[in-house]
Design a protein around this nucleic acid. Sequence first.
DNA 1: TTGTACGCGTTATCAC
DNA 2: GTGATAACGCGTACAA
Lengths: 324, 324
Amino acid sequence: MATIKEVAKEAGVSVATVSRVINNNGYVNDETRKRVEKAIQSLNYQPNDVARSLFKKQSQTIGLMVPDIMNPFFPELARAVEDTASKLGYTVILCNTDEDIEKEQMYLNTLLRKYIDGLIVVSNTLTAKQIKRLNVPVVTVDREISKDIPTIIVQNTAGGRMATRYLKEIGCERIAHLKGPDHIRNANERCCGYKEEVHNEPWFKEDYIIEGHYEMESAIKATYQLLTRYPDIDGIFAGNDIMAIGAIKAVHQLGKKVPDDVAVIGFDGIALAKAATPELTTIAQPIYEMGRMAANLLIDLIEKKKIEKTFYNLEVELVKRQST
Amino acid sequence: MATIKEVAKEAGVSVATVSRVINNNGYVNDETRKRVEKAIQSLNYQPNDVARSLFKKQSQTIGLMVPDIMNPFFPELARAVEDTASKLGYTVILCNTDEDIEKEQMYLNTLLRKYIDGLIVVSNTLTAKQIKRLNVPVVTVDREISKDIPTIIVQNTAGGRMATRYLKEIGCERIAHLKGPDHIRNANERCCGYKEEVHNEPWFKEDYIIEGHYEMESAIKATYQLLTRYPDIDGIFAGNDIMAIGAIKAVHQLGKKVPDDVAVIGFDGIALAKAATPELTTIAQPIYEMGRMAANLLIDLIEKKKIEKTFYNLEVELVKRQST
DNA sequence: TTGTACGCGTTATCAC
DNA sequence: GTGATAACGCGTACAA
């Protein structure tokens, strides 16, 4: 890789002039600019980002911290973030944390040492204090960490209501809820929406709410138990799509049919939901849009642009498919 | 962030000494080491990676270039790469290319300018020449680019044979193949394995091979056509799991049953396959293992360790589930 | 065993 | 309009 010095020599000017041409600032004669540009061409010169970063204390790089990229929600988010960032001249570092405090702290340090410009984070365990220490803009997605950290979430409670109400509308008379983990806020919110819709129903029992871990195995087991104990359940609202798919499996295992005997609705709107059989009805989050907004907001923050809002509570959408 | 200079002042030594204790090389008195360490503690000093990179011309960062992280094969690969890299002190930059030559070239440039230490790449379009220009170690995964670039692939032909043979074993007498895109080598290899198993069968027709794009929609359409035209097909080997799921959908649409009327087998072993209904029988690649090996190999290359092999052709495994 | 001084490739400030 | 030159923070000859 050629350096700015070599370009300067080639063009018979000083490095300062080359720098001016590259960054397009300060006065420079048209004549000399041409010469410099030719030198840049012929040496195939590319500015060294590392040297630039050292001087500017920024790296045109952002971090994306997620629990686990293998969780189907995150690839779409990551894709959106990466698309948007790269369009705006930023590069993305991928961090999987498993929500493990040590891994998170480790990554925070690494990112700091690399002069990261900003961070997009999905985490329940990270504290506002740790984030402040970073001293760079941070945007949280899918989960709130603190009021004064820019956040992009969806209307989970409304979504929970929407899902439950829809099950009622299509005729379900005993609706259970497969709740997500208790320590995750959105799981409780979705559950809240469910409760608001059913707590006045004569048939409602607290036992109709059963907790899973936002993954399939536990959802299968939970559903199995639920339906064995309460065979007249005819509708299940699962806290996320993976659990909904697990629920469908359990229903089938018990020799019942989806949606005829039991209707199932999920939450998230991951791609997987379309691939399931029967195709999953779900409350879809605008996942790509969330990633796009997070990246845009973060980069506006980094570049100190005027910001309109730093808190987005996006709407969810009922996507009717075959499982209801 | 404190700098090495501040630490030096705090400890009453020179920066050189501080550098020595940080990097643990050169002589340094136990006494002074203690003092320096205390200063580091009290200032919460972290070495500046950017300055380090500038000096060392390396960044403890690798690139991971994939067509699209939303494609279910890649999250697991990415997770493996990131796990392994971070364990070894490296950070991962995520690059989605859509196999678009321009995006690839753009990323190559960016990575170069960031003193990337190495690159793991999945691509059909990238040429050996472009890769050489990078001047850093590169490992390709899932697809071969050139004989002299370290590569990790699986035995696609053997896998194709294995899938087809299994369908025969379980009694299928008219087996079709949903082939992947013609420009992707592994699609042709898998198809090859299929042909080897069926070309001597009296019932075999070239028409039993039909091309899809490694995604669901085209697979559904293709299967639909296939089964309409040749209703006696009772087994389908799909080039990847997504297409297999599409095939299952099409079979259902036609009012037939999987596996009773038509058995379906996929290829890849993505997580999605377990979530499908019926659960998908597939030829599983050791995806995580491939990512792990790629990262390990790459980092060995970067650190100029002794390398045993630079070409791995891994075995695939028949995973029997409900779709056959 | 420790310190001085230079270089890594840029950018920005200040003379000219 | 252009050119020296001092940072940016670190690692390492070389001298002491």
